[in-house]
C-alpha cells in the first residue's frame, strides 16, 4: 500500500527491510572451501536420503521390446583409468561376510540359478542412455544360494580392475538386479565386464560394476563406491 515518507523515516524503514534479507549472507559459506565441501556433501547426502525414502522395491524398471534395443556395437562403455583386465581362466567369485556358505563360486554355480533375460535402460551419469539386453541370475537368488543374512545392510563387490562398488540390501534384492553373465544372448565381452558383472536397472550406470572378483555381505563399508568416494552420489538411484 502506498505511503508517505519523509527522508529520515524512509531511511529507517529501508534499513529495517534490508535487515530482513541478512540471512542471505549465510550463502557466503559456499565460498569458503572447507565449508563448501561439507555443505555440498550434505546436499548430495540429503538428495540420497530423499531418494532412499522414495525407492519402491516393488516398482519395476520399464522393459522394452527387442526392437528398441541399441545394437551391441553401439553400446558405449567407459573404461576409466585402467585397461580392460585379463580374465583369469580359473575365475572364481570369492564370497565372504555375513553369509552361511562363504567360499569360491564358479560361473557354473551362478548359471545354475534361474536365468533372467531383460531389455532395460542403462543410464550413464554423463547423460546418455541406451536400451540393452542383459541376462543372468537374480542377485536375490544368489544371496539365498550363499545363505546371506538378509538383514545385513550392504552388498559390496570388488573388481579385477580395482573398481569397487556397494549396494544397499533393498536394491540388491530388487527383482531386476542381476548378476549378469550374458548380453544380447552371448557371453559377456571383455569390455562389458566378462565374466561377471552387475546389471542394475534401478541404479545409474557406474553402480553396475564389471569384472567382479569378490562379493561380500556386510553392515560396515570401509569404501562405498569407486565414483561415490570421488564425489558422485553413492546411492545413485534412478
Amino acid at each position: 500500500m502506498p505511503r508517505r515518507f519523509d527522508n529520515k523515516e524512509f531511511k529507517r524503514v529501508s534499513r529495517r527491510e534490508i535487515l530482513k534479507l541478512t540471512p542471505l549472507v549465510a550463502l557466503g559459506a559456499f565460498a569458503i572451501p572447507p565449508a563448501q565441501d561439507y555443505l555440498l556433501g550434505r546436499g548430495v547426502a540429503f538428495t540420497d536420503w530423499v531418494s532412499d525414502k522414495l525407492f519402491r522395491r516393488g516398482h519395476l524398471a520399464p522393459t522394452y521390446p527387442d526392437s528398441a534395443l541399441t545394437p551391441l556395437d553401439k553400446f558405449a562403455f567407459n573404461s576409466y583409468d585402467t585397461n580392460t583386465p585379463e580374465i583369469d581362466p580359473d575365475w572364481l567369485l570369492e564370497v565372504s561376510g555375513l553369509v552361511t556358505r562363504p567360499g569360491n563360486y564358479s560361473l557354473d554355480d551362478i548359471r545354475r540359478l534361474p536365468k533372467i533375460s531383460q531389455n532395460t535402460r542403462h543410464v550413464c551419469i554423463e547423460g546418455w542412455d541406451l536400451v540393452a539386453n542383459f541376462a543372468g541370475a537374480r542377485m536375490s537368488d544368489f544371496l539365498n544360494l550363499i545363505g546371506a543374512d538378509m538383514n545385513a545392510r550392504f552388498v559390496y563387490v570388488e573388481c579385477a580392475d580395482d573398481y569397487y562398488e556397494s549396494l544397499d540390501m533393498e536394491a540388491a534384492t530388487h527383482p531386476q538386479s542381476l548378476l549378469c553373465y550374458e548380453m544380447y544372448g552371448k557371453p559377456l565381452q571383455a569390455g562389458h565386464g566378462a565374466p561377471l558383472r552387475w546389471s542394475l536397472p534401478t541404479k545409474i550406470g557406474y553402480k553396475s560394476a564389471k569384472y567382479l572378483t569378490s562379493f561380500k555381505v556386510t553392515n560396515v563399508l570401509t569404501r562405498r563406491s569407486y565414483w561415490g568416494d570421488q564425489g558422485y552420489s553413492t546411492y545413485a538411484d534412478i
Partner: peptide, 15 residues
C-alpha cells in the same frame, strides 16, 4: 570443475 563436482552443486542447489 568436473562432472562430479558440478553434480554436487546441482544436487544441493536444486533444493
Amino acid at each position: 570443475g568436473w562432472l562430479g563436482g558440478a553434480l554436487e552443486w546441482h544436487y544441493t542447489f536444486m533444493w
